[in-house]
């Protein structure tokens, strides 16, 4: 019986370590999020880029993007908060905030601000995997 107990303890320990490793991978996974302020077409509708927009990812310093600007944020983990501040036509300041889950396996994603403003709940429309074309060296 004692050996059995020990076997279980060991098995549990190994499983715990593996689970911990997976947790570490989730917590430590780094994503590059390209913050894009360009015209974009969503469901056939053309969305215009904003003339100027401020965006903050998590607690990182906020970035200011002019029209057709693109910047990037390096984030660690799976869920991230996007805070977008911009002025609408009436020069009213609008603040949008949203927690978004990032797909684990993607290293690089593109975040389209116009699409985000257009429909904050349609995650697929503004957060998409981004593939770099392999540049041969």
């Amino acid at each position: 019986m004692r050996i059995n107990k020990r076997f279980y303890i060991r098995a549990v320990a190994i499983i715990v370590v593996i689970l911990f490793a997976i947790l570490m991978a989730f917590v430590g996974k780094q994503h590059t999020i390209l913050l894009d302020n360009k015209n974009i077409e969503v469901n056939g509708a053309e969305l215009k880029a904003l003339s100027i927009v401020e965006i903050q990812v998590d607690k990182q310093p906020s970035l200011e993007l002019a029209k057709r600007d693109r910047d990037q944020a390096l984030v660690q983990g799976q869920t991230h908060t996007f805070l977008v501040t911009y002025n609408d036509e009436n020069w009213e300041e609008i603040v949008l905030e949203k927690k978004v889950k990032v797909p684990f396996s993607e290293d690089m994603l593109i975040f389209s601000i116009p699409a985000f403003i257009n429909d904050i709940d349609d995650v697929d429309s503004y957060l998409q995997p981004f593939e770099i074309e392999n540049v041969s060296e």
Binding site: F20, A21, L23, M24, A25, V27, G28, K29, Q30, H31, Q76, D107
Partner: peptide, 10 residues
């Protein structure tokens, strides 16, 4: 592409 302390532990 895992970074930081979690990467070390991993």
């Amino acid at each position: 592409n895992v970074v930081g302390i979690p990467a070390m532990v991993l």
